[in-house]
């Protein structure tokens, strides 16, 4: 009990918790779950944009896209490493993902249908991820906070690159402008859903805020994202697909329409357009690579034996 009180005092005073420090079981479990889901999101997130690497319409865009998707693999690696400092086992976390026992961000359960989706994902999806993740750079668990600093830095490049692609396309042909608008129409609402359910229905928020794992509520972050994105959309020359979107001078924020929470829960529960496909792709890669990982392990073991 004393340990627990001391822990609460430490996090309330904004001190970092490090791997060897005592921590409540609930804190450890919450973090492992959150970091694992975050890592899985990075890895599954490689697929929607990876879908366009082979077809990227200029060599510069191909290089940017391949480098971006590679960054996401790197983010997954930092995060799995952070989870391992809490005693989690990466192989087990991977099994949880490929067997569908652990979730990842629902945004990746939507299909990428044109090359404009690459730009819109960079702008809106990486943008929303940044809003969610910047506060995590000050989260109470040290290794997670440090991983997030690296991740956020790269996400901000992804966002700028995505926006720059869209700017370029908007200066192109009418067909390109249409393509951008179509992609915005498809990704806008799912991007708003990335902040999770409304505060009233969010189960974990309160405890996580007290432990300084989370620092802002879902609705606060969502509002922030809308406020930042609206002027960017104007500059770009696209229309966000929400007739209710309007500046509210009294609140000092933009009002926006009701999110389709039924769709949100449908996709979270596994019935989005690409849920099955994303997990199957990951599982296939994992299974196809099993003999390679086994060979590497066997070779390393033989080498160790010889060295003795």
């Amino acid at each position: 009990m004393d340990l627990e009180r001391e822990f609460e005092r430490v996090v309330a005073a904004e001190h970092r918790v490090e791997p060897r420090d005592w921590m409540p079981d609930g804190y450890r479990k919450t973090l492992v779950r959150q970091i694992a889901q975050h890592a899985h999101s990075e890895i599954i997130g490689m697929q929607p944009e990876g879908n366009w690497i082979g077809r990227a319409p200029s060599l510069r865009r191909k290089a940017i896209l391949l480098a971006k998707v590679q960054d996401e693999a790197g983010h997954g690696l930092y995060l799995y490493a952070a989870a391992e400092t809490l005693g989690a086992d990466r192989a087990e976390l991977t099994r949880n993902l490929v067997e569908g026992r652990q979730k990842y961000s629902s945004i990746f359960n939507y299909p990428t249908l044109t090359f404009a989706d690459v730009g819109v994902i960079g702008w809106l999806v990486d943008g929303a991820a940044i809003c969610n993740q910047v506060p995590l750079c000050r989260t109470s668990y040290g290794p997670y906070a440090r991983a997030m600093i690296r991740v956020c830095k790269e996400e901000s490049f992804h966002q700028r690159q995505g926006y720059e692609l869209l700017m370029t396309m908007m200066r192109g042909t009418p067909a390109q402008r249409e393509m951008v608008q179509d992609a915005v129409d498809r990704w806008w609402w799912p991007s708003l859903m990335m902040f999770g359910p409304p505060d009233a229905e969010s189960a974990n928020t309160e405890q996580s805020m007290r432990w300084r794992i989370k620092r802002h509520t879902n609705d606060e972050l969502r509002q922030r994202f809308v406020d930042m994105t609206v002027p960017q959309a104007e500059r770009l020359g696209v229309t966000l697909p929400d007739p209710a979107l309007a500046w509210n001078a009294e609140r000092g924020h933009h009002d926006f329409g009701e999110i389709d929470w039924a769709e949100f829960w449908r996709v979270v529960k596994g019935d989005g357009p690409c849920n099955a496909e994303r997990v199957a792709h990951r599982r296939q890669a994992h299974e196809d690579g099993a003999w390679v990982r086994e060979a590497a392990a066997a070779y390393a073991a033989k080498k160790r034996e010889r060295a003795v």
Binding site: I43, M46, Q47, G50, I53, G54, K62, L66, A67, V69, Q70, A73, G74, G76, L77, Y80, H281, R282, Q284, A285, D288, G289, A290, V292, R293
Partner: peptide, 18 residues
């Protein structure tokens, strides 16, 4: 680049992309 998101392990995904 066809290996991207399909490599036997994440480290190799990064290496092949490099």
């Amino acid at each position: 680049a066809e290996w991207c998101s399909r490599a036997p392990e994440l480290e190799e995904d990064v290496a092949l992309a490099n």
